[in-house]
Design a protein around this nucleic acid. Structure first.
Lengths: 293, 293
DNA sequence: CTCGATATCCCTGAAACCGAACATGGGCCC
DNA sequence: GGGCCCATGTTCGGTTTCAGGGATATCGAG
């Protein structure tokens, strides 16, 4: 096994053309260089320098070693530099609710990449519930999720509310305009998964003081929701932004009476301030800016 | 500054979830782990673990450090493995005479890549004279060059001879068929650079026992030679293979009398057996095979 | 033989390590 | 709820290990 020091010394020998000169250059004694390299060769079981009586020269194996190992030194120096100089770098594990992936996320990432080019992102899309847990477990650094499922003890910043609408494929169903709760409840409804807040909100609106509850299906995939509605499986409760961002769909928004209107989704962006203060603030700032315009 | 050992220990702490467990796993005392990490943190001026009274947990900076530094360990292990297990890997500095770049070289490299996927090539194209010097200076590992300019004390293997022809652009010049030395010498001749063997051979053939020497131009670039002939600058002495490999040219071979025929070029592939025995043999083998079919 | 280089030997000093004692926080029993 | 216990990290003194320094032997080329 070899260490960084070994490579530095070998490189010095190569550059200065001998053990003696390398010793002068590094401030070590010549004997130290000789011993170090011999030990290294013994440990690794390879020949690094061929002793030619007078002087040494790098063997083919030795050249391979320096060639390859030099980049390790460069990488180490880069890592140290980034960590020390407070450069924002490394991997940010970002969790995003699917609703935000089409609208806010791309703008936010573009902003961030412009400000911190060394930053890399690892993005996962999941339910707010799962991501809240992951945030607590330090499996995610920053999460964009529904406000009501954000864990405690976490820095949260609200994002602009996402308005919800009722959508229908006009070639499959026809509804009065404006439609009332009874009109909507008569059809199958496609919504978010049943463990989520939006799903519960739909249920509350649709069953308020009624005998026969509406049939509400859940889907964890927005694309699936849109497709189901598109193909006449039922009507859907979908964020306006999402439908707008899906150019190829032919969905029509249903004009509904006030009591059937759905409350907007309230998203927050959150991070653990004890753990990811700096990066969390930066991502939050970018998200807020991306949400404004 | 940090070393491989530091990273291994940090990683062990992370994997086993604490200093004590890491101590058991690594065979160190728990106090040693504690001291090492504290010392490392002091030296680098960063916090790697956040002490939470009971237990420690990786800080954001610490996670960045492990994330980035882990790949260094992996790379070191790979390098060691390659060097120790006799895997053919690393960079082979290959010098090739331009004549061989269109015919033998691609087949040879394909063969080699198939046999030794970890091998990388750094190819330089130069005159045989320069490359011979580079081989002596250990600036090249393997060289394909003209036999007569190969240095001494070097393992050389002959390659199939490369036949030379006289070529002309029929729209610019008309020559009798077969043409004699006088016919050829009446026109400007484009050949290899004037320090090279082929150039001298042309001169010898053209000036044997004559008063007025032929005008022989030299070019270090085959492409330039072909272009010059193509555009009527003169006639050219070019390897048959090269013209055949240049599909877009309209050159015509000149039928010449026996005394004007040029001897074939004799190439060898060579390496220093004291320095690059293994790789030299492998490259040579591939070259011989590529030259046969 | 002499010169210019590496290799070897012995000694020293610093760095790493161990073990034990100490400090701290969480969980549990009464 | 208070006190005890256990698990864990920290600190301290003594010990071991290892890398380096200096002097000298050795080696090959000219």
């Amino acid at each position: 096994m070899f260490g960084f020091r070994d490579i530095e010394i070998i490189r010095s020998v190569v550059r200065h053309g001998g053990f003696r000169a390398a010793a002068d250059a590094t401030g070590l004694a010549q004997s130290a260089i000789s011993r170090r390299i011999r030990h290294l060769e013994d440990r690794m079981g390879i020949t690094i320098f061929e002793r030619a009586g007078r002087g040494v020269r790098l063997s083919a194996t030795g050249r391979r070693l320096v060639d390859e190992a030099e980049v390790l030194i460069a990488q180490r120096d880069r890592i140290l530099e980034e960590l020390t100089q407070g450069v924002m770098a490394g991997v940010v594990r970002l969790g995003v609710a699917e609703t935000m992936t089409h609208t806010l996320l791309p703008r936010m990432l573009t902003t961030l990449r412009g400000r911190h080019p060394m930053l890399r992102f690892e993005i996962s899309v999941d339910t707010s519930e799962q991501m809240g847990q992951a945030l607590r477990d330090d499996a995610l650094d920053v999460v964009i999720m529904l406000r009501d499922q954000a864990p405690r003890g976490i820095a949260l910043t609200p994002l602009p509310p996402v308005s919800m609408g009722w959508f229908v494929s006009p070639e499959h169903f026809t509804l009065p305009s404006p439609a009332g709760i009874d009109d909507l409840a008569a059809l199958p409804i496609v919504s978010f998964p049943k463990t989520t807040i939006p799903h519960r909100q739909v249920l509350e609106v649709m069953t308020a003081g009624r005998r026969k509850p509406a049939t509400v299906h859940g889907s964890a995939s927005l694309a699936t929701m849109v497709n189901l509605v598109q193909q006449g499986f039922g009507i859907g409760t979908i964020p306006h932004d999402i439908v707008a961002a899906w150019p190829q769909t032919m969905l029509q928004e249903i004009d509904v009476l006030p009591e059937a209107k759905l409350p907007p989704l309230e998203f927050v962006i959150c991070h653990d301030p004890e753990r990811n203060e700096e990066i969390g603030r930066e991502v939050t700032r970018a998200a807020v800016e991306a949400g404004c315009d």
